[in-house]
Design a protein around this nucleic acid. Sequence first.
RNA 1: GCUGAAAUAGCUCAGUCGGUAGAGCACUUCACUCGUAAUGAAGGGGUCGUGGGUUCGAGUCCCAUUUUCAGCUCCA
Length: 591
Amino acid sequence: MVNFKEEERLNTLNHSCAHVMAQAIKHLYPQAKFWVGPVVAEGFYYDVDLGEDVITDESIAAIEKEMKKVCKEGKKIYRREISKSEAMELFAGDEYKLDLIEDLEDGNITVYDQGDYTDLCRGPHVDNTKLCKNFKLVKHSGVYWKGDANNKVLQRVYGVCFPTPEELEEHIKLLEEAKERDHRKIGKDMQLFMVDDLIGRGLPMFLPRGYTIWQELENYIKEKERKLGYQHVMTPCVGTVNLYKTSGHWDHYKENMFPAMEMEGESFVLRPMNCPHHMMIYANKMHSYKDLPIRIGEIAHDFRFEASGTLKGIERGRHFCQNDAHLFVTPEQIADEVSKVVDLIFDVYKDFNITDYRCVLSLRDPADTKKYHQDDEMWNTAEDALRKVLKDLHIEFTEEIGEAAFYGPKLDVNVKPAVGNEYTLSTCQLDFCLPAKFELTYVDKDGEKKTPVVLHRAILGSLDRFMAYILEETKGNLPLWLAPSQVKILPVKNEDEELLAYAEEIRELLDRAGMRVELDARSEKLSYRLREAQIQKVPYILVLGNNERNDRTISYRLHGQQKTTTVSIDAFVEKLTNEIDNKLVAPVEEA
RNA sequence: GCUGAAAUAGCUCAGUCGGUAGAGCACUUCACUCGUAAUGAAGGGGUCGUGGGUUCGAGUCCCAUUUUCAGCUCCA
C-alpha cells in the first residue's frame, strides 16, 4: 500500500514528468501551446494545442524518444516567483497561459525553468529532469478545451512515471491484468453475451449462459424487494410523447431518446426510463395516507440513444434493464424510507462482497437554470432532507454540485470498473417535482388532498451493468449460485456402462435438487475434459470412476484448485444446497 | 458526437518490397478407453468489414463508409 508521503513523492515526480513531456513536445512542435498538465490518479497528462498537427501513435513514439533525451541531459529544475505583470509578459501571445494567469493572484505566481523550457506552475517539482526517466506514455486523445464541446479540440497525452524501472514494469503489468478482467472479454470467452452489427450497436444479446446469470440476479433482487413490501409491475417499453412532455423528460432528454414514431396521428417513443409509467400506476386509484408508502418495482426494459463513443459491452448499451422502483411516501416518511433503501443497498453489497465503492450526494447547480427544474424552495427542502438522512445514518459521502437529476438530488453509490471510468451502481433519488407534475395526491388525516414525495431508486442499477461489475470483480469465477454451469460430471471412462449409469444417476439427482449440472462423457481423455471444465470456470468438477461407483461417493475438485475431495452423495448435495441457498461468495471447505 | 488507432477462418493472431491466403485452438471423421489442465492422424472452413480508386496485379497503397477499441464529452 502506498502511504501518503510516498504518494506525494510520486505525484511530484509525475508532475515533473509532465513538464519533461511538454518540453519534448515543444522541441518537436515549436508551435505548441500548453493548457494544463495535472497529476491524476494514474499518472499525469498534458493538454496541448498543436495547431494543425494531431498526436498519433507514431508521434507518441517520437515524443517518448525526445523525452529520453531531455531526461538524459539532466537539466536542473529551478523555481522562480514572478509578478502578475511579468507573467503576462512572459507568456504574451499564449492565450492558454494568459487565461490561467488571469485567475491567479499577484504575488502568488511561480514558474519553473528546466533548460530551454519554462512553464507556469505552482509546483512542487523534483530538482532534476533525469529523475523522470522511468516513464511511459500510455494513451492520447482529443479533448475539448475546458471540457466544452463548443470549444477547440486540444491534444491530451497521458503518461506514468515511477522512481524505478521495476515499479514502472509492475504498473504496466497491472494495466494488462485489468484488460483480462474486462467484462467484454470474459463475456466472449464464457459465451455469456454477444453483439452483432446487424442487430445494431449498443444492443447486446444475452446467450443461454449469460441469461442464466441475469435470471438469478432478477430473482434475487425481486425476492429481497418482495420481503420489504415492494409490489412488482410490468409496464410497456413504449409510451406517448405526451407522457414525457408531462414528466419534463422530453424537454431535457429528447436528444438522447430514440426518435418518435408517428402512427394514426399519435406520437410514441421507446421509453428511456420508467418513472412516468409508475406515476400513472399510482394515479390509477385514490390513495389514503394509510396506504403509504407504496413501493412500485419493476425489472424494466429501457432504451436510450447513448452517444456511440460511450457504448461499452453490457456496462452501457442502448437497451438495458433497470432494477427500478418508485416509492410514494408522505413527507414524514422520507427519512425512514431512504434509510430502508440505504440498508437494502448495503445488504446487497454484503451478499456480493462489494467493498470498494464511494457514496456521492449529487446536488443541483443553481447556476444551471437550463438543466434543473426551477424551484429554489423545493431544491433546498429536498437537498437538506436527503443530506440530513445520510448524516443521521452516518454514511460517509462527498457532495458534488451539478450531478443531480433534473427533478431532484440523489445519493449515488459509485464503483470503478476494471477498465475505464467510475460509474454509478446504485442510486436513491428524492423527488418533489414529478408527483406535482402528474398531480398525484393522497388524502391525508385531515381529509385534504396532498402531494406525495417520490423516491426513485435502483439497487442493482441496471442488471446488465451489475452483471458486468460482478464479472470483473470475480474475473468470471462466479459464486456457485450465479454460475451458469454449477457442476460438471466427468466419468473416468466413457465405455464402461455401469460407470456411465452411475454418472447419469448422479446427474439426475443433482438436477432434481435444482442444480445446473452437465455430464461430459465424450471420448476424450480425462485430463482433456478436466482442462476444458476448468477453462469454463465450472465451480465443481466431479470425477467419477469405479472407486466412487463402488463406494457410492463423489470426488470433486473446485475450480482453480488441485485438491480432490471425496464425500458421500448426501454430504455433497447438502454442501452445495447450503452454498446455493445462502448465496455464499466462496465455497466452504471442511475443516 | 469529438481525437487517435484497429478490422484477415467460430476464437486468438501471423502475413516482409504490392505477386494471387497461413498457424494454433475450435469443428467433422477415424483410431486410441484413458484417474485429475491439451492422445494421434486426416478433413472441412476465408469476396481479408463494405464500397470506390491507383496498378499488369491490392489483405498490403489512396479515398469514403461501417463497426470495434482507448480517451474526451455525456449518462434522466
